[in-house]
Amino acid sequence: TFYNFIMGFQNDNTPFGILAEHVSEDKAFPRLEERHQVIRAYVMSNYTDHQLIETTNRAISLYMANL
């Protein structure tokens, strides 16, 4: 899942690491979701930090390219 992918960046001092920290603390994050459209919609609806949203979009693109 995307959640498992992004958790691989925990403790990294990178934008993906920052995203992983936010996702791990977000109890409502769709952890079992595999459809990138649902993940993107969730982030757009629940996150207000523009940098975090952009990082999510980049992470989703990388995740999709590696499926």
Rank of each mutant, 00 (worst) to 15 (best):
P15T: 07
Q51H: 12
L62N: 04
G8F: 08
Q10K: 15
Y63G: 00
F16H: 01
V43L: 07
S61W: 11
N11E: 06
I39D: 00
S24T: 08
I6A: 01
V38P: 04
M7Y: 03
H50Q: 14
E21C: 12
E25Q: 15
L19W: 02
S61Q: 14
T48K: 12
V38M: 10
F9N: 01
L67W: 08
S45L: 12
N46I: 06
Y47R: 01
G8T: 14
K27A: 12
A41S: 09
K27I: 12
S24V: 07
A41K: 09
S45N: 13
A20Q: 04
E54P: 03
L67M: 13
E25G: 14
V43K: 00
N66M: 15
R31W: 06
D26P: 03
N46Q: 07
R35H: 09
V43D: 01
I39E: 00
M44W: 07
Y3M: 01
F2Q: 00
V43G: 01
Y3N: 00
Y47T: 04
A20C: 03
L32W: 13
A59K: 03
T1M: 05
A65I: 11
F16Y: 08
Y42S: 01
I6R: 00
Y3H: 02
M44H: 09
I60M: 07
Y63L: 07
F16P: 02
T55M: 07
R58F: 10
L52R: 01
G17Q: 06
G8N: 11
N13E: 10
F16W: 05
Q37P: 05
F2Y: 03
F5W: 12
I60V: 06
V38R: 07
N57Q: 11
L32E: 13
H36T: 15
D26H: 05
D26S: 04
A20F: 06
T1K: 05
I18M: 11
I53H: 06
L52S: 02
E33Q: 04
V23E: 01
V23D: 04
A20L: 04
I53C: 06
I6N: 00
Q51N: 13
Y63S: 02
L19S: 01
G17M: 05
S24N: 12
S24Y: 13
M44T: 10
R31T: 06
M7A: 04
F29K: 00
S24K: 15
T55K: 02
M64S: 07
A65Q: 12
E34V: 15
F16K: 01
Y63I: 06
S61D: 15
I60R: 00
N46L: 05
N11V: 05
M44Y: 12
A59G: 03
S61H: 12
H36F: 12
R31S: 05
L67Y: 07
Y42R: 01
N4M: 12
T14F: 03
N57A: 09
T55S: 07
F29P: 01
Q37R: 08
I60C: 05
A65L: 13
A41R: 09
N46S: 09
F2N: 00
Q37V: 08
Y47F: 07
A28N: 15
N4P: 01
R35G: 07
G17P: 02
S24G: 09
T1W: 05
T1N: 09
K27G: 09
N13G: 14
N11P: 04
I60F: 06
L67D: 08
R35N: 15
Y3S: 00
L19A: 01
G8P: 03
N46F: 08
T55F: 08
A65E: 12
V23P: 06
V23Y: 05
F16N: 01
H36D: 07
M7E: 01
T56V: 14
A59I: 07
I6P: 00
R40Q: 11
I18V: 12
L62W: 07
Q10C: 14
L52D: 04
Y3D: 00
E21W: 14
N13D: 13
E21N: 15
N57I: 14
Q51T: 13
A41N: 12
M7F: 03
E25A: 15
T48C: 07
F2W: 05
N66G: 13
A65T: 09
Q51M: 13
N11D: 08
T14E: 03
D26L: 06
E25R: 15
L32H: 14
I39V: 08
V23H: 03
I18D: 09
D49Q: 06
R31E: 03
N11C: 10
Q10D: 05
L32Y: 14
L67A: 12
Y3C: 01
Y47D: 01
I39A: 01
D26F: 07
H50S: 13
V38A: 11
Q37F: 11
A28S: 14
K27H: 10
S24L: 13
N66I: 14
R58M: 11
P30L: 05
L32N: 13
N57W: 11
M64A: 09
P30N: 02
D26R: 06
